[in-house]
Design a protein around this nucleic acid. Structure first.
Lengths: 196, 196
DNA sequence: TTATTATTTAACAAAATTGTTAAACAAATA
DNA sequence: TATTTGTTTAACAATTTTGTTAAATAATAA
């Protein structure tokens, strides 16, 4: 034992994440991943044995990263307004870094088994849904199913990033303008969802 | 000439659209398409010669369908409020019918050349952006770049449909509830974007 | 009925992709 | 230095996928 860790196994996973989650090349092969990581394709199989196992692992890591970012924001003891602001700020950055993660999970799900969520998620999402309900009673949020509110929030953050190339061509947005607009969105999204 | 039209060529295209745009099976092969259409795979090549040509054609048809739905709504001589309502009503139905069309275009774009839009789009999108600006001055819409408004509108319609499976598992939404929620969304979206 | 068109069947070839194995080489550790 | 671990190279096999071709069959139109 005491296998020395060269970080190559993680390098391969990180490269795969970059290709699938960040660059959105959903059809990339193990060869593409190996090339991008600068290692031999045999090594990919040496560490992960199969493409499916690698996929499964990066999906799990992606889910875990997501939870590690969300949990402290949603369970903290701050006012709802602060949580919402923090969430938009943090999650939008995360989505910009990994625009295609959800998309990858969705399309891979269609090839294999359904993705499962562990009970850990309920522990912080359910209380947050309850907080949303309270804010509706206080009049800071339009009254609706709190899950609709969550969908609105996620939609406003995710979709413009996933569909960036389409938005740019349909709405005639230059690359520079697009970046500027994404920065403005954090405020726009907050103001659409919350009123003092 | 006067080649008799059996509708099979269109059947293959429609089946491909169903698989890619509707079912989101982005990795489907020509064999999968042929099977789903109930024809021999040779016929797919007989009509389209290559997979890429078939893909190119269904993307073009998808773009054209989208334009044919949008154009009459956006260029009509109705009040903005009516147009917006009509647009949400019609486009959300379209998105529910073809949830993964944008996704397919985006991912295919990454494998081949960039998707081009003809000038036709500007003819009805630019005037509509101008209308949005007017509504902001009238105070019916929060002030922002009109293109941000369009992004918000498209996001609120598209994302919950594309990410349905994820939303269901994260927010613990049953299939029946999800359908109910999608019906409610037409009003929710309108009310988020427009205030009398 | 004959000719044309649509479709299937079967048999391939070529390429791409995944996965395995064995041997060699490189680098770190004991 | 000897040994273990990491990595590459090379050579395969198996499978999948795309694309082509020729011949047979079915259906329709002239």
């Amino acid at each position: 034992m005491a296998a020395r860790d060269t970080g190559t196994e993680q390098l391969i996973k990180d490269t795969a994440k970059r290709i699938f989650f960040s660059e959105g090349k959903l059809h990339a092969t193990t060869q593409d991943i190996a090339d991008a990581a600068g290692v031999n394709r045999t090594l990919v199989h040496y560490y992960f044995r199969s493409r499916d196992i690698l996929f499964e692992q990066i999906i799990q890591e992606g889910k875990e990263e997501w939870r590690l970012v969300m949990e402290p924001i949603l369970t903290g003891n701050h006012p709802f307004k602060v949580k919402l602001k923090k969430m938009i700020d943090t999650v939008l950055d995360l989505i910009i870094a990994y625009p295609y993660r959800e998309l990858f999970v969705i399309t891979e799900e269609k090839r294999h088994a359904e993705i499962q969520l562990d009970g850990k998620h309920d522990l912080f999402i359910k209380p947050f849904l309850a907080e949303i309900k309270e804010e509706m009673i206080k009049g800071h949020i339009k009254t609706m199913d709190p899950r609709q509110f969550m969908m609105n929030l996620l939609s406003l953050m995710s979709y413009p990033v996933v569909s960036a190339s389409l938005q740019k061509s349909v709405l005639r947005i230059s690359d520079a303008e697009y970046i500027k607009m994404m920065k403005q969105r954090k405020n726009i999204i907050f103001e659409m969802l919350y009123q003092d």
